[in-house]
Design a protein around this nucleic acid. Structure first.
Lengths: 237, 237
DNA sequence: ACCTGAACACCGTTCAAGT
DNA sequence: ACCTGAACACCGTTCAAGT
């Protein structure tokens, strides 16, 4: 009876269930709360039990990264590489916003996981199908860097902020604190302009989405121009 | 006598000495070896003694970041903003190559330290002096992102690899392992092209410096074009 | 054969007891 | 008044002892 309840309570505990629980824990409580012990407790299991399904914590993180990257929507068949890539990167960005811990985790793990490779392969496929040379494609992938995965990698990224839960804890300062403003006048002027720049979003600092697309389009436009000119690296170095 | 030797052995232990020792430890043994306990041992001191000079480990990391960012050479007076910024970013990159742990540490700490603010302020100053509007300058800073600090943020960054000591431990694979090559044909083709692309550096994968400058110039050229056209964000959104 | 409690070797940090 | 050893509350992971 008590034994039967026990059996029911603990569902088989597959690797998949562990990974989903780990992602949920990191999403909800922050990546710094993700320990083998906490995760085991969330699953109603002794910590040691996890090691039957993941070799160690690093492999757990790799698995979590695969789960997240796997959420990025597949590319829609599109004739034009530029809007296709643009859409894909913005889709990746939406996924990363749902899992604010993911960018740093991916960078820290150096992203050699299977899901990441599959994603990158598909992006390369889009560029090649669009007529870009292998050479140019290679440089473009480097130029995009982690931006291709939707990272904003901005200087003051509130989303990435050691974030407890998904909630925005405190409004970004928008303008620098007065003490800092005096020491760094140029920075203060730019920050101040940003905060009352757009009338749409009041006092929210600045429009992250706009900034992301600004940078993305700057890169994509540059690539398109090089492509139209038949750019080759051999001619340059 | 023994007491006198003791006194001589342990130099006063200032905050500055702690920070320099911490940077040296991270450079030499990798950031994962940086613990309060290891650092104290390197300084011939009990761990608790460190807390007299730094409040906690996070403040220690902030101090280390300030040391590293402080190493970036000040801007040479230059009439033209574009080559000035280009040189500065490449100088920052050299510094980051000396301290491979720094980019990830800066991203993890969200870079609100004094030295980082001072650096950014100076970069903004360069752009403003070059005639860029506050508006455009703001967007440019976002578009550059952490690249302005010399981060390569590349997809497979060997330098950032959890690096034990400064030495290159194993040559990068350049081409993907055969198993992966079969699964990810597009990626494999690009990787293969990269490895025998340049004749200068044999088998070293690809030229990181070239890729960095490629991306940097793509951004700078785009910015210059916008600036010449008198670009304003109000006209676009 | 399988599972797991206790243990090991670490952390960052506190605090009261020593000088 | 100052310094610091022992201790606290954690880690990831091992391993032998239990079923």
């Amino acid at each position: 009876m008590a034994e039967q309840a026990e059996v029911l309570r603990r569902t088989p505990l597959s690797r998949d269930r562990i990974l989903r629980a780990a992602v949920a824990l990191a999403d909800g409580a922050g990546i710094e709360s993700l320990s083998m012990r906490n995760l085991a407790q969330d699953l109603g299991v002794v910590p040691m039990a996890l090691y039957k399904h993941v070799a160690n914590k690093d492999e757990l993180l790799d698995g979590m990264i695969d789960v997240v990257v796997g959420e990025i929507a597949p590319p829609e068949p599109d004739t034009d590489w530029k809007p296709a890539l643009r859409r894909r990167v913005l889709a990746a960005r939406q996924v990363m916003r749902r899992h604010p811990w993911a960018p740093l985790a991916i960078e820290a793990r150096n992203m050699a996981t299977v899901a990441v490779l599959a994603y990158l392969d598909s992006v390369v496929g889009t560029l090649r199908a669009g007529g870009l040379s292998v050479d140019l494609t290679h440089h473009v992938m480097h130029a995009m860097g982690s931006r291709v995965l939707g990272f904003s990698q901005e200087l003051f990224d509130d989303a990435r902020r050691a974030g407890r839960s998904g909630a925005v804890e405190s409004g970004p300062p928008a303008a620098l604190p007065p003490e800092a403003a005096a020491r760094f006048p140029h920075l203060a002027a730019v920050a101040a302009a940003a905060s009352h720049d757009d009338d749409s979003v009041v006092g929210s600092g600045c429009d992250d989405q706009f900034e992301f697309e600004f940078a993305l389009d700057l890169l994509l436009d540059g690539v398109e121009r090089l492509h139209r000119r038949g750019w080759t690296s051999h001619g340059h170095r």
